[in-house]
Amino acid sequence: MSGGLLEVEDLHVWFDLPQRRELHAVQGVSFSVDRGERLGLVGESGSGKTTTILALMGLLPPTAAVAGRVLLDGEDVLARGERTVAPHRWKDVAMVFQGAMNAFNPVRRVGEQLVEPMELHGVASGTQAMRRAGELLERVGIPAARLRSYPHEFSGGMRQRAAIAMALACRPKLLLADEPTTALDVMVQAQILQLLIALADDFGLGLVLVTHDLPVVAQTCTAAAVMYAGEIVETGPMDALYHEPRHPYTRLLFAATPDLESRDVVVSIPGNPPRLDEGISGCPFRPRCDSAVERCGLERPGLRRVGGAHEAACHVAEQVPA
């Protein structure tokens, strides 16, 4: 145990479905984030990446069952459910969502909404809180005078930056950002990503960036975990994932992503991800894999070390063409 800021160990999430069925959305996910580290959690829709971070925040609906350990500075925050997670939510762990539009109450001024979490968690109050709210806005590149504005008076990019300011209100150690730039234009996206990098560097904030967009992670994060069918199939330094991918899914996902400066043929991955409401035998990626061998149908591979901090869940990891 390295004693990092966040340690997630063998996290599972099940959702109840009608007729006593269950959907096993997160199937034994482990990762860690240190102070100032920027980790990308990458995957396609349904891969379990958003469910994973909602579980860390204790924000899953009551139909969800959670198992595993989430250690924040060594303390198990999931140990006794809501009672142990609530004191940390927004205070130590904060989250930014995709639709910045919905993060704010439309009929209240931005300033009041920035102050609210500070007063709720006893971080600051009154004029002191309002002054801190102004500083936060300035930090994300919005003039403090805009505290008096209403959310609709902000552009989409400003709203997302204000949402980040709100997430920072209680000086969290960890920021979870779920597709924070997906609905934004590239110019605004670049501003937000630069801001997230600066926040991690300046305040030692741990960042988990959840996205389906590999280039965004490649340019923002130092390390990444690639999720498929509810589990992490490969994790390691960003550079290793791109230049020496060890899981076929990672390699094929990069090959399916067009790049501005590459004339490589872009190829889609045939087939669909497996259903998560049925048991999976063997490797979940096997039906779509171009490197599968007989063993892949029989035995589900676990994450194993393939070099340095680089791990892959693949029986033929050593044979994957780079």
Partner: peptide
């Protein structure tokens, strides 16, 4: 516009011209 398009190769850094 081209300077802010993220490249998929992490080694390829372009200074975003915001």
């Amino acid at each position: 516009l081209l300077s802010v398009v993220p490249r998929r190769d992490p080694r390829r850094r372009v200074k975003p011209q915001i």
